[in-house]
Write a protein that binds this DNA or RNA. Structure first.
Length: 531
RNA sequence: GCCCUCGUAGUUCAACGGAUAAAAUGCAAGAUUCCGAAUCUUGCGAUAGAGGUUCGAUUCCUCUCGAGGGCACCA
């Protein structure tokens, strides 16, 4: 890929020019301003201190080696010391041909990378999936798809908190049996119309009743996840299964053997403070029941050790961020490294109505389900609405506004580009287009070049996201690509008299369609031929 | 009280420490004999406040103000 080629060449140039010095971290990026080229690097700035020279001088010295090494680019130094790269037309067209060669596999990495497990959503099986879960749900779904495409052995997973030993399952059971009211909405949503289920759990222990009810709720949620949210998990993992397999028992012994626990006040404590947490944490209550933390240690040990994932990514809501040090401490104690576990916190969605906050409480049954939202604004608009925002900023959600915005949602702008492409190909009577033998020498108009450039930067966008998890960049890129396509379309007729121009523009349209399709599939948004 | 996030145009929101802070929406003005106007063009408008580090700060550090979250033998 172009980006990597430049990186390597800069590294080589520094060593060649200055001998064996420490090469600091430098950046290679695509400048916002097109006057600054297709790529630029700040390497001269980061070397300035060490070499005690001005950035302009350093850039001037490095450029000789770079020019020799990168004939694909025109390279210039611009003040105050950036080195800027312009892709030659030949290199541009040659990269463009790759889209035809790889088609729906364009941007797919051939090199195999580490195994990654992405766990997300994992809503408690005590109720429906609400709006606040939307961010993590769609974010995780798209991240996994991107990782897979970039060659990671990535899998998605949903963790079901259904341990019979847990308080929440027992309380759920009692609620279902009408003995307690921990979850007021449960009756309306799951019990009322289901006498068979009520009869079935009536005589069970609270734990078994809760487990049974949780399975029922979970099945409902799973259907919504797959059918309504368009998320297909590689795996659903049951917390209770860790008890059945004996892994919880084994872990207790293991931790004791490693001298990581002690008894106090009749409970069993984990020495979390020793590994970076603010205090020690309970693993077994004085009643002898395990806490969620114990099974969570087992679960993550299972991910890293038993299933051999090199890296695990957990996507959690902001209400769990205080829990992160505890989990990390436990994994550190078990011998794993910081880089083995990534926790991504998605900030809360605040529900507002006419500027005033509406308190959303799952416990009190005051919430809007994600299913409702999707029904209200449509899946495509809903997915885009969540996916276009970074996960770490707070988000205000006004359903009225969301309805309004859904009509003007940028997703339609992108889908419209796809529909226009389909329409042109249909009009031209072509489905699949093979590249021209002589190359694409007639594509020289400004809008054509801009569009080609945007298309060939596509693999780099996926790579960046795979590296830094900023999934929202994909929606932004998709929007820009649509804009570049619409601009091209507005100014230049594809179906024209001139046969060469006709064929080449048709190729450009086709290649754009290929990339749009990949992006929309990745986002989990439909790619319509007609709207 | 202690800890963690966040604060950018009227609104919804972008920006690995990089060059002139990007868009959408809104408002104003304009574009269609021709592949779909759900489109295109132009204009208006923002980094909460005060210091500091740096060649360079929306980004890092300190304080103030404001919003959200966490401080369980719940999950």
């Amino acid at each position: 890929m172009l980006y990597n080629e430049i990186r390597d060449s800069i590294h080589k140039a520094v060593v060649k020019t200055y001998g064996k010095i420490e090469v600091p971290n430098f950046s290679v990026e695509t400048p916002a301003n097109t006057a600054h080229g297709d790529f630029s690097t700040n390497v001269a700035f980061v070397l300035a201190k060490q070499l005690k020279k001005s950035p302009t001088d350093i850039a001037g010295e490095l450029i000789y080696s770079l020019v020799k090494d990168l004939p694909k680019f025109d390279i210039k130094v611009l003040p105050p010391g950036f080195i800027n790269f312009w892709l030659s037309e030949e290199a541009l067209k040659s990269e463009f041909l790759n889209i035809f060669k790889r088609r729906e596999k364009y941007g797919q990495s051939m090199t195999k990378k580490e195994k990654v497990l992405v766990e997300f959503l994992s809503a408690n099986p005590t109720g429906p999936i609400h709006i606040g879960n939307g961010r993590g749900a769609f974010f995780g779904d798209v991240l996994v798809k991107i990782l897979k495409r970039r060659g990671y052995g990535a899998k998605s997973e949903y963790y079901i908190n259904n341990a019979k030993a847990s308080e929440q399952i027992k309380n759920l059971g009692k609620t279902g049996q009408g003995k307690y009211d921990a979850y007021p909405y449960v009756f309306d949503m799951y019990i009322k119309d289901n006498p068979a289920l009520v009869k079935k759990i009536k005589k069970m222990t609270p734990a078994n009743a809760g487990f049974t009810l949780a399975r029922f709720i979970q099945e409902k949620n799973k259907k919504i996840i797959e059918k309504k949210l368009n998320i297909k998990y590689d795996n659903y993992f049951s917390e209770e299964s860790l008890f059945a397999s004996g892994e919880v028992q084994k872990m207790k012994k293991f931790l004791a053997k490693k001298d990581l626990v002690y008894e106090k006040d009749g409970a069993l404590w984990f020495k979390a403070e020793k590994f970076g947490d603010t205090e020690d944490r309970v693993l077994l209550r004085s009643t002898g029941e395990p806490t969620y933390f114990l099974t969570d240690i087992v679960y993550h040990f299972n991910k890293l050790k038993k299933r051999k994932f090199h890296r695990i990514v957990n996507i959690w809501g902001a209400d769990h961020h205080g829990y992160a040090p505890r989990l990390k401490a436990s994994l550190k104690a078990l011998g794993f490294e910081e880089e083995n576990i990534q926790i991504i916190i998605t900030q809360f969605v605040r529900l507002v109505e006419q500027g005033k906050e509406v308190k959303m409480s799952k416990r009190k049954g005051k919430f809007i389900t994600l299913e409702d939202l999707v029904g209200e604004v449509g899946l495509d608009a809903a997915r885009f609405f969540f996916l276009e925002k970074t996960s770490d900023t707070h988000m205000d959600f006004d359903l009225k506004l969301a309805r309004e915005r859904s009509v003007k949602n940028p997703v339609y702008y992108i889908q419209y580009a796809h529909a226009r492409i389909a329409n042109i190909l249909k009009k031209a009577g072509r489905k699949k287009i093979v590249p021209r033998k002589g190359g694409y020498k007639y594509l020289r108009e400004k809008e054509e070049i801009v569009l080609i450039k945007k298309l060939i930067f596509f693999p780099g966008v996926f790579q960046e996201i795979a590296e830094d998890n900023h999934v929202n960049r994909l929606t932004k890129y998709a929007y820009e690509l649509a804009r570049d396509f619409h601009n091209f379309y507005e100014r230049h007729r594809v179906i024209t008299e001139d046969k060469d121009i006709y064929e080449e523009r048709l190729g450009l349209v086709y290649a754009s369609g290929v990339v749009f399709k990949i992006i929309l599939d990745t986002l989990g948004i439909s790619a319509p031929d007609k709207m």
